[in-house]
């Protein structure tokens, strides 16, 4: 018994994800040495401007995981109301129930130790399809999404193409 609760649980989740990966999602530790940093690849949901894209992201887990949530950051260009310009993802499942700076998230949507990497990634995937513009992380993207949907979709498609190296 030399290991921490967090690393065991992360190992367990890694096993689940490799055994039975959800559609359009792969994730795992970046290196053998540190199980607290993961890389995830998310496919853009179909029938959205993100379709056909593959979006890499980095997940960082705290030492007291799963009591505290991980943080998630896209490592590619991402034009989305709920993703900060630096790539950090702002979604309720990644926020601990304690603090609610925006006063709009219901507690049931927030982080709880029963959540998992898989659930986070599925939530992020559906966030790509349906942005939440109530408290945007990227105000410009949110405004564009609301007012100039065509332009928003064009930028997203450009990013998809850039990400694929086209």
């Amino acid at each position: 018994m030399t290991s921490s609760v967090a690393s065991k649980r992360l190992f367990q989740e890694y096993r689940t994800l490799t055994n039975n990966p959800p559609d359009g999602i792969t994730a795992g530790p970046v290196s053998e040495d540190d199980i607290f940093v993961w890389e995830a690849l998310i496919q853009g949901p179909e029938d959205t401007p993100f379709a056909l894209g593959v979006f890499p992201a980095e997940l960082k887990f705290p030492r007291d995981y799963p009591l505290s949530p991980p943080s998630m950051k896209f490592t590619c260009d991402m034009w989305h109301p709920n993703v900060y310009p630096n790539g950090n993802v702002c979604i309720s499942i990644l926020h601990p129930p304690g603090d609610d700076p925006n006063h709009y998230e219901s507690a049931s949507e927030r982080w709880s130790p029963i959540q998992s990497v898989e659930k986070i990634l599925i939530s992020v995937m559906s966030m790509l399809a349906e942005p939440n513009d109530e408290s945007p992380a990227n105000v410009d993207a949110a405004r564009m999404w609301r007012e100039k949907r065509g332009e928003y979709e064009r930028i997203v498609r450009d990013n998809v193409r850039k990400g694929l190296g086209l």
Partner: peptide, 15 residues
């Protein structure tokens, strides 16, 4: 990274 001998519900999906 430490290795753990973990079982998982998804083990049954192969069967």
């Amino acid at each position: 990274m430490e290795k753990y001998d973990v079982s998982d519900p998804s083990d049954w999906l192969e069967t």
